[in-house]
Design a protein around this nucleic acid. Structure first.
Length: 637
RNA sequence: GCCCAUGUAGCUCAGUAGGUAGAGCGCUUCCUUGGUAAGGAAGAGGUUCAACGGUUCGAAUCCGUUCAUGGGCUCCA
């Protein structure tokens, strides 16, 4: 007789040992069908397992996020079987679940997406056959014997501590696996292979290159469709495409990974920085600037020469070696040391829009998201140890203010001391507590990544969430216990003694180039008025009105509205269409009526037209929206 | 840096048994002077197909190298 406690605290008693599925069926047949796996006292297990003692039992149903992972892992097995059926010499390695799907690394000849239909067809056969996933346990030696033809599996098995090894079998296919799995292959309703790439065995460049096959799977076709739609949507928003279309920026072979900003892109760039400067001035920051190229001696002192050299561009000037800065901090150190500092002057918040260069691997470059030259909206804050909490809190508040200006949500992650680190236990504790207390005081939930901090100090990373729900790490607040030491920074305390200041590095946009790209995708090119590269376009109805339109443009420009005239000899319809597809927020048609009455006919992107606005009325509304940086597309009531 | 794919007019792309380049958009000119999502016609534009080298009587098309781009891997003290 055993008693099983369910999440609602009800207890079910069984005479014999039931399987999980048996228990599920006592709830209802329908419920049992939706069950994927179970947790017995928190341990994930297959539904087919016997329950042999009193325990707490929680079913994982198709609605749980955990279920999706189990399904995808099972789908990886199905894909592996399919590949093995089709390619005899394919040697399986590992096939984990990743965000959005799964992959399997397989030692086989290179394949391409053209091979996908055949593999998918084979997978469908396996799925249709509704093969049960059966778990068996063997000894390590037995497992080694079974997989003796596959050196990868042998290596995996040997690395396992357990003496007992679980295997999963679906039909004639068996794979080494911890499990759990879904009951049978038929539950995989929506599955698709996504892409393929090379990957190294154990991520080691010196070892065998494997074929990585990516796929994704869902419990129903609809969810798969939705997922594919989201991907499509993201592709449409690709900042590289929109950047070209809206004439914002470009890339050239002559400077790989280093973006060129066009006039319109620069307009937006300046708007971003104007806002940044305004917000930082209000938050008590000063702005500084340090050189792009600095002597090797400095980098040796900062430790970059030793630790970051492979990413740095160098040059020789007058027989002295120089490096182009990959970070702004060493220059910031020199600035701090320019004068003496009193505790009364702390915290000192020194911002810098610093242009940095990092030699990223050629294969890593990607649009504005991964570049070799970019600007950081950096700031170094120097303070007394007891100011850490309040200062961090201030940065968090600034972060929230800036991101919400763009309608971006965010979440926080705290990274603590890693194994390899410098500094005393006491200092780490003080620093980490400072960050933690600030986070607690701030009140928003945060994740903790134990041991994920930099070797020189703990940090808070800020991940923003865009309109498609994708997250991007942009902001970071890093406490640095190394540099103040290396550069012997001091301040004069109230006791008239020398003290070591605490320093943090922090960015909010992060890389301005990257943030720019994120904004392009977040808004899908349809920027709010205050950000739009072209805020208003004047469309003369006929050529005779070009000069009147030109006059209006001058007036608007003088008011600070970014405004153009489309004076091509084209039909009004065409000009409107183009302005509309280029997302110009204010489309102003200029006809005889407007000229005579001195008014404006304004069309907004929702297609609505307001006639008879005076320049006064128009500019009042428009300038208000620009000044307040509103996100709302409803410009006029 | 590694693997795979791609690189043709400003943009998007077509062009395979290798025979000396095309379309749409854009641009220019002309006609139309139009009232809220594409009016019509003509024309220019590629140092000739990323660059360099090779095979061939002949290469955008085949081969090699390099560069760049894309997707991954890796890296990101």
């Amino acid at each position: 007789m055993i008693n099983i406690t369910l999440p609602d605290n009800s207890i079910k008693a069984f005479e014999a040992f039931p399987t999980g599925m048996d228990v599920a069926k006592t709830i209802s047949e329908g419920f049992a069908r939706s069950c994927v796996a179970m947790e017995v006292d928190g341990q994930p297990m297959d539904l087919s397992c016997d329950i042999t003692c009193d325990c707490g039992l929680k079913f994982i149903t198709t609605r749980d996020d955990a279920a999706l992972e189990i399904l995808r892992h099972s789908a990886a097995h199905v894909m592996a079987e399919a590949v093995q059926n089709l390619y005899e010499r394919a040697a399986l390695t590992i096939g984990p679940v990743v965000e959005d799907g799964f992959y399997y690394d397989i030692d086989m000849d290179p394949i391409s997406e053209e091979d996908f239909p055949a593999i998918e067809a084979e997978m469908q056969k396996i799925i249709k056959a509704k093969k049960n996933f059966e778990r068996t346990v063997v000894s390590k030696d037995e497992a080694l014997e079974m997989f003796k033809d596959n050196p990868y599996k042998v290596e995996l098995i040997q690395a396992l501590d357990d003496q007992e090894i679980s295997l999963y079998r679906q039909g004639g296919f068996t794979d080494l696996c911890r499990g759990p799995h879904i009951p049978h292959t038929g539950m995989i309703k929506g599955v698709k292979l996504m892409k393929t790439s090379g990957a190294y065995w154990r991520a080691d460049q010196t070892r065998q290159q494997l074929q990585r096959l990516y796929g994704t799977a869902f419990f129903d076709k609809k969810a798969l469709k939705k997922h594919l739609h989201l991907i499509e949507e993201a592709q449409k928003r690709d900042h590289r495409k929109i950047g070209t279309k809206l004439d914002l920026f470009s890339f050239h072979q002559e400077a790989a990974g280093m973006p060129f900003f066009h006039a319109r892109g620069m307009d937006m760039w300046n708007v971003l920085l104007d806002y940044w400067r305004e917000a930082h001035r209000e938050a008590g920051y000063v702005e500084t600037k340090t050189p792009v190229m600095l002597s090797r001696h400095l980098w040796e002192k900062s430790g970059h020469w030793e630790n970051y050299r492979e990413n740095m561009y160098t040059s020789v000037v007058d027989e002295e070696e120089y490096a182009i800065k990959p970070m702004n901090c060493p220059g910031g150190m020199l600035l701090y040391k320019t004068g003496s500092h009193s505790y009364r002057d702390l915290p000192l918040r020194a911002g810098e829009i610093g242009l940095v260069h990092r030699h990223e691997l050629s294969g890593a470059l990607s649009g504005l998201f991964r570049v070799r030259a970019f600007h950081q909206d950096d700031a170094h804050i120097f303070m007394m140890p007891e100011q850490i909490e309040e200062e961090i809190l201030g940065v968090l508040q600034l972060v929230e203010k800036v991101y919400s200006q763009f309608g971006l949500g965010f979440h926080l992650e705290l990274s603590t001391r890693p194994e390899k680190s410098i500094g005393s236990d006491e200092k780490w504790e003080q620093a980490t507590n400072g960050l933690r207390n600030a986070l607690d005081k701030y009140g928003k939930e945060y994740l903790i990544n134990e041991g994920d901090g930099a070797f020189y100090g703990p940090k808070i990373d800020i991940h923003i969430k865009d309109a498609l729900g994708r997250t991007w790490q942009c902001g970071t607040i890093q406490l640095d216990m190394a540099l103040p030491e290396r550069f012997d920074l001091t301040y004069k305390g109230a006791d008239n003694g020398k003290h070591r200041p605490v320093m943090i590095h922090r960015v909010i946009y992060g890389s301005i180039e990257r943030f720019f790209g994120i904004l392009v995708e977040h808004f899908a090119g349809k920027f709010p008025l205050w950000l739009a590269p072209v805020q208003a376009i004047l469309l003369p109805i006929n050529d005779a009105l070009n000069s009147h339109a030109k006059k209006l443009q001058k007036q608007m420009s003088a008011l600070g509205i970014r405004c153009e005239v489309d004076k091509r000899t084209e039909s009004l319809k065409k000009k409107i269409r183009e302005a509309q597809v280029n997302y110009v927020p204010l489309i102003i048609t200029v006809g005889e009526k407007e000229k005579e009455s001195g008014t404006l006919a304004v069309r907004t992107l929702d297609g609505k037209v307001r006639m008879g606005l005076t320049m006064e009325e128009f500019s009042q509304v428009v300038l208000k929206h620009i000044k307040e940086r509103t996100l709302d597309a409803q410009l006029f009531q």
